[in-house]
């Protein structure tokens, strides 16, 4: 009997959505560990975490949105525009930095609401709506900045929250860990997460149960937009500058990280642990390939390959 219990336990772990992605991550790490000398050093592993953080922060919110059956392709552009907006407000206009932060977040919430309301009230697929706002927001970032990066943030005191190091970890990674943990709690322990799963699992059933699915999805849209903005601040904290062209292609990397982590593209099924590991996979590949000295062009191709392989591995472990 004892054996059976153990087998059941093992089966439960192995068929968890996050187990396959965990194996994939280990495989990638072993590969880079063998291929390079530096990969497994303590400092480099912290680097891996840091390189996963920006994508990771957005992935947490994206996973929640995809779970409720919607998409947001505008996060990469929002990642640039919110930083630019903050830069213009503080550097050009000379506004108080805290007021500028509040305005930037208010703007992010507005963008989320616009994405959500166009999608849900008018009935345009979110894929199309956010494809539109992706281009719109990118254009806005380029226009407001005149196409030039904005720097000089190191003089502002807010940089202490989003830059530097705490407990030996880069600030952006701390933010990533906190947000991922919050995401895990929301999806697994709160009423909101419960409603998101229900909305994505069967929208009609959720509606007939008296759930306001429009509101649930709207919250998801706001969260992706806000997450992109937080990511943008942590990026400013690390780099000390913001560029209107930053974050191009992030939307796909984020969705890839989420899907690699076991999120079903048609909603209703996801794992926050998986999404966290998925983001780590993205960071590991970028880091490992840089150490190996491969070109940035090759990195793109390699990430694509890994996404496909990782999803295949993941599917194998699910019953």
């Amino acid at each position: 009997m004892g054996n059976e219990d153990l087998l059941n336990k093992i089966k439960k772990i192995v068929t968890r959505q996050s187990f396959g992605v965990f194996i994939a991550l280990i495989a990638i790490w072993i590969f880079f560990g063998v291929a390079t000398d530096a990969f497994f050093s303590f400092n480099n592993l912290i680097n891996v975490l840091r390189q996963s953080s920006v994508i990771g922060i957005i992935t947490v919110a994206m996973t929640m949105l995809i779970t409720s059956q919607e998409f947001d392709l505008s996060v990469g552009s929002m990642f640039a525009l919110s930083g630019i907006l903050f830069g213009v407000l503080t550097m050009t206009v000379g506004l108080n930095q805290w007021l500028a932060i509040i305005i930037t977040f208010a703007f992010a919430i507005l963008v989320g609401l616009v994405n959500g309301l166009i999608t849900l009230k008018i009935g345009i697929p979110s894929f199309i709506t956010t494809l539109g706002t992706m281009m719109l927001l990118r254009g806005a970032a380029l226009v407001t900045s005149g196409g030039y990066p904005i720097s000089g943030f190191r003089e502002l005191s807010f940089i202490n929250i989003v830059g530097g190091r705490f407990l030996g970890l880069p600030a952006m990674s701390i933010w990533f860990l906190l947000i991922a943990f919050a995401g895990y709690i929301i999806m697994n322990k709160t009423k909101l997460g419960y409603k998101m799963y229900a909305t994505g699992g069967n929208t009609k059933a959720a509606e007939l149960s008296g759930i306001n699915t429009t509101k649930i999805k709207l919250i998801g849209f706001v969260l992706t937009s806000v997450a992109a903005t937080i990511a943008s601040f942590t990026s400013i904290g690390f780099l000390g500058m913001v560029s209107p062209t930053q974050g191009q292609g992030f939307e796909l990397e984020v969705i890839a990280a989420s899907v690699v982590g076991g999120t079903a593209l048609f909603g209703g099924s996801s794992s926050m642990i998986g999404a966290f590991l998925g983001a780590l996979i993205m960071g590991s590949i970028k880091n490992g390939l840089s150490i190996m000295g491969t070109s940035a062009y090759l990195q793109q191709a390699f990430i694509g390959l890994v996404v496909i392989v990782a999803v295949i591995i993941n599917v194998q472990f699910q019953d």
Partner: peptide
């Protein structure tokens, strides 16, 4: 309803208590 609207991805108990007041 005729087409038995349930959320397949949730557990039995989660389906029963799905509603505005969880």
């Amino acid at each position: 309803h005729q087409d038995i609207p349930v959320c397949d991805n949730l557990t039995v108990a989660e389906n029963i208590f799905l509603g505005p007041k969880i």
